[in-house]
Write a protein that binds this DNA or RNA. Sequence first.
DNA 1: TTCTGGTTTTGAACGCCGTTCAATAATCGC
DNA 2: GCGATTATTGAACGGCGTTCAAAACCAGAA
Lengths: 210, 210
Amino acid sequence: MSIQERRAREREERRDCILQAAQAIIAEEGIEKLSVRKIASRIEYSPSLIYHYFQDKEEILHHLMGGVYKAILEAIAPYQFSEEPPEEKIKASTRKYIEMALQMPDAYKAIMLSSVPGTLAHTSILFKDARQKRPALGMLCQYLEELGWENEEQIERTAQVYWCATFGLIIRMITEKDLDHMQIERLIENYLHFILGGIQQSVTCRKEEQ
Amino acid sequence: MSIQERRAREREERRDCILQAAQAIIAEEGIEKLSVRKIASRIEYSPSLIYHYFQDKEEILHHLMGGVYKAILEAIAPYQFSEEPPEEKIKASTRKYIEMALQMPDAYKAIMLSSVPGTLAHTSILFKDARQKRPALGMLCQYLEELGWENEEQIERTAQVYWCATFGLIIRMITEKDLDHMQIERLIENYLHFILGGIQQSVTCRKEEQ
DNA sequence: TTCTGGTTTTGAACGCCGTTCAATAATCGC
DNA sequence: GCGATTATTGAACGGCGTTCAAAACCAGAA
């Protein structure tokens, strides 16, 4: 028993070791320079070994990216329980989300632009009832409800396009390098103002309809 | 003279031929499967030949993508001269832009996500005075002016985040496959409603400030 | 201790890729 | 027709992800 346990533990350790090496390479050279062979040489094993611990390169990426995205989601989770008004909660958590993403641009890009089913299962937001499975989406839906929105379908769809829009800003800021902190700060501020306007306007519309 | 002209023409023709072959491969197999060797084999020349007509693979992509993006911009240009109210012009041209992008998802993704300076020079929108160089941006700025906006800086920044947001929606719709026409239509409709809300709200704010 | 069965690790290979470069073939100006 | 220019090629380099049969290793049984 004990021996099998040790074996399993060692196996897990080596998996971690591979993931760590991959992370280090990404940190040093960028995600597009990551290769199975480089991971192997860094841990001083032959490339074929990797394939006894992971099915393919994609699986390695998937593991790493899962961790990254989880970190972002965990960073914005606390706002949920804040006592501030919903608008402020939306603003604060969106800002945090953007800042987290910008701190790990390669990883964010990689995970959010991946079309691999396994990754997509963690990042897609445009399916029905997505709010149940996507914390960021669910959080925004909750805020909208706190703001008095009632149409379930409109809430979810608004949350979906909201996060698409936020995603767009982030990716463009990542893609267009040479933006300094000042410009980024201004863009985020402008974006939040603009997008919150969209939410408030929709409230106005709803109120008028009643 | 004439002979040199013919030479130049022939050279141009072969360049076109290479570009056409590349386009065909992209159409058949997707952009990520495009390779210099495939282009060469399709035009029945050796791979090395390609490098006498283009500096590298990137330059080929750049030429193709330039054409693609131009097509989108040309498709939305006419709305500029329409007599409809600015809100309608914004809605209509944004919708057209989105639809065009969705018709050539691979190409759109490739050009808008490329970080290569040459490509970036055609697609970046987050720099100062971008409205002078970016038709889509300039158009939106014009509409905002027609709506009575006056703060030059706010106009440009709003236009920037507006297109970032639109870009985000498009990329997510492209990335998350399995969306049917109905869902896409609903998302676009919802997005336009939402984002126009943002614009109108900003107007309201401005009016209140005065 | 030696053998056995399973696990871990490797080396070599396959078939791709982008790119370079010296050598050859074709074409032109004279 | 000849020398220079241009077009084209074949072979090679170094990289990639991945596969697979063979080797090395190791736990427990005889």
